[in-house]
């Protein structure tokens, strides 16, 4: 009987990561879309770094940073009882960093493309920045928000390098589908590798088909 736990774990990881990313990315994307700060290019670069770097680089440094063998990792362990290497929490953190551009970019570009006058007319009507964001800006960039959510979810599902570096291969804890496939192939269990792979292909296809169908015109705008 095939072990479904890697698939379930993959979904759990993608869901938790997407929720955290969403909460984190709204203020970050809003700041990036409207700031004139000199820091902006640096922050934008940092956000986009995972697009360029091999995931192993990120995984390697996270592994070093969170290892209880060094002071920061030890401090986290002692103070919060939080061990971020070879644990689900560590995977979530790694995935958040790794999928950050996939959430921030669509939301930022959605906000940037809204006419400036929408924000300004809300301000002159006496509304604060926060009220303006929640009631005027975000409701008018729903397609971008959906794109960000779906892409982050899908991207986290497809993650391999970061997970391998800081998560390892612990059943029910860090063995996500992509790792399980690798593991099965190593053990020459091609049958199970096929099952995991086909499930991932179908899910990825379904998600991308959904997003292209729902929001074709918007998707093109920033993807191409």
């Amino acid at each position: 009987m095939i072990d479904w736990s890697p698939i379930i774990l993959t979904f759990r990881l993608a869901t938790v990561t997407t929720i955290f990313l969403f909460i984190l990315s709204i203020p970050l994307a809003n700041w990036l879309a409207h700031t004139s700060s000199r820091l902006k290019p640096f922050i934008e670069t940092l956000v986009a770094m995972p697009l360029v770097l091999p995931p192993t680089v990120l995984g390697f440094y996270l592994l070093i940073a969170f290892s209880p063998g060094n002071s920061f990792g030890l401090w986290l362990d002692v103070t919060f009882g939080l061990r971020l290497v070879f644990s689900f929490q560590g995977l979530v953190l790694g995935s958040i960093i790794y999928s950050l551009p996939f959430m921030v970019h669509p939301i930022q570009s959605g906000l940037t493309n809204l006419p400036k006058s929408l924000r300004e007319s809300s301000y002159v009507l006496g509304k604060s920045r926060f009220q303006t964001l929640m009631k005027v800006l975000l409701p008018n960039i729903k397609p971008s928000i959906i794109t960000g959510i779906v892409l982050s979810f899908a991207h986290t599902m497809g993650e391999f390098g970061v997970v391998l570096m800081i998560g390892g291969n612990i059943p029910e804890e860090t063995r996500v589908a992509s790792i399980a496939i690798y593991d099965q192939v190593e053990s020459l269990n091609y049958g199970e590798a096929h099952v995991y792979s086909i499930v991932l292909i179908l899910i990825a296809f379904a998600i991308l088909l959904l997003i292209y169908t729902l929001n074709r015109s918007y998707f093109k705008r920033w993807w191409v």
Partner: peptide, 26 residues
């Protein structure tokens, strides 16, 4: 926010997510 002004923009700047009444209510 604290100047008590009305501002009508050249490009209208109506909130697309709200109906006419909701725009006014805002």
């Amino acid at each position: 926010q604290k100047r008590a002004i009305g501002y009508v923009f050249q490009e209208y700047a109506l909130f697309p997510n709200m109906t006419v009444r909701q725009n006014l209510k805002f």
